[in-house]
Computed example of a mutant assay.
Amino acid sequence: MQRFAWLFIALTLGGCSIYPLPEDYMTTDSGQLYTSDRIAATIRCQTRDAIRAVIRRNIAAVPQSHVVYQRMARDEMLAWLDGNPANYRALKWELFSPELSKPFEYYKDTNVSYDFTIDSTEMNTLGVNVTLLKALNAGTDTLGLLAKNDRTREANRHFRVFDTFDSLARLMKEEACNNQPQVPNYLFPIAGLLRINTLIDSFLIANQWENLAGDKTDYTTGQMTDTLTFTTKSTGNFDPSTTATSVAGRFVPSSASLNVDNYRQDLHTIIILISLPPTKNGIPQFDEYGRILPPGKAGARAAASEGLDRQQQINTQNALTRLGTGVGRINVP
């Protein structure tokens, strides 16, 4: 029995995280931990880059000889922005030429709202099954021993972030977007390059040419939402076993098995809401670092938060519909 004592002692040990978080498994290419704030920064930086790409395309569409900003012509202006991205912070939308300043000023207060849910679940099972067998003259005696330890840990983190086209394109600090991913991450997509630019482009096209409407009976405040859900499951099993023949007169382990199961699931859900401000009154104000200033301008934040709430309700209703029609599937590890 003493030979197997270590197996029972091992049941009190384990690799289950007490507080499972994304950084347990997700790291950047340089080895930095991928925390929830870095996840938010990655999404915001990719949104910022998409908005800047739109600004650049609009400037590039102007005839070459035209002055587009103060005294700079098109190519000079593009070289100035490309040479140092920090120059975006110095832009003043009203100083652009009329064909650019009008759309830039119209869209600068467009809200970009994010709802992040990061749900990490980890389960560890460690079990020992030993069968002791003693041979007798008239038969055998059998003694079975089973010990098992199951542990489940779950952490659910939820938060929201509010931006505008202007706060992202101009005011967001350049160092906040250092070492951002340049390629997709197929294991943890939320830590890689996503196609957020398609949402920005689709919103602008739809609002310009397709009479984009708002929610329910609001036909004047155009909005568009993407809900991204990424599920990554990791499973590991270790199940060695051994058998032996019985010995007359004493118990011997005729069979012994060790069962180690490890299961990790990371569920990341991001709702990105792009919406025009309901009115020019109540538009949030941002400081020189892109941070929302204190009250007085909370109306747009409240409207954006309500929009995210509605999208969460829609997602829940869609999930229930899929479950009711048999389209949804429940996986039990």
Rank of each mutant, 00 (worst) to 15 (best):
Q2E: 12
F8Y: 14
I9K: 15
G14C: 06
C16K: 12
D24Q: 07
M26Y: 02
Q32V: 07
T35R: 15
T42E: 04
R48S: 02
V54A: 04
I55K: 01
V62I: 13
V68E: 03
Y69D: 05
A73Q: 10
D75K: 09
A79E: 10
A79T: 15
W80M: 04
L81R: 06
N84H: 04
N84S: 13
N87W: 06
N87K: 14
N87Y: 09
L91H: 14
W93H: 07
P98E: 07
E99I: 05
S101I: 02
V112Q: 02
S113V: 03
Y114R: 07
I118G: 02
S120R: 12
G127S: 15
K134I: 01
L136P: 02
N137W: 07
A138V: 10
A138F: 06
G139H: 07
T142I: 14
R151T: 14
H158D: 04
H158K: 14
R160P: 06
R160Q: 15
F165P: 00
D166H: 01
M172C: 11
K173W: 03
E175M: 11
A176C: 14
P181Y: 10
P181R: 13
Q182Y: 10
I190E: 09
L193C: 08
R195L: 09
I196S: 12
I196F: 12
I205V: 15
A206E: 14
E210T: 05
E210C: 11
N211W: 05
Y219V: 13
T220E: 09
T221V: 03
T221K: 01
T221H: 00
L228W: 03
S234W: 04
T235Y: 01
N237Q: 10
N237Y: 04
T242G: 08
T242Y: 00
T243K: 09
A244Y: 09
S246K: 08
G249Y: 02
R250S: 11
V252P: 03
V252C: 02
A256N: 05
V260P: 01
V260H: 09
D261H: 12
N262Y: 14
Y263D: 11
Q265W: 00
H268L: 04
T269P: 00
I271Q: 12
L273S: 01
L276I: 00
P278M: 00
K280I: 04
G282E: 09
I283H: 03
P284D: 14
F286V: 11
E288L: 10
G296D: 10
A298L: 09
G299L: 14
A300W: 04
R301Q: 11
D309K: 13
D309E: 07
Q311R: 12
I314V: 14
N315R: 14
Q317M: 09
N318V: 04
T321E: 03
R322T: 05
V327Q: 07
G328V: 01
R329H: 06
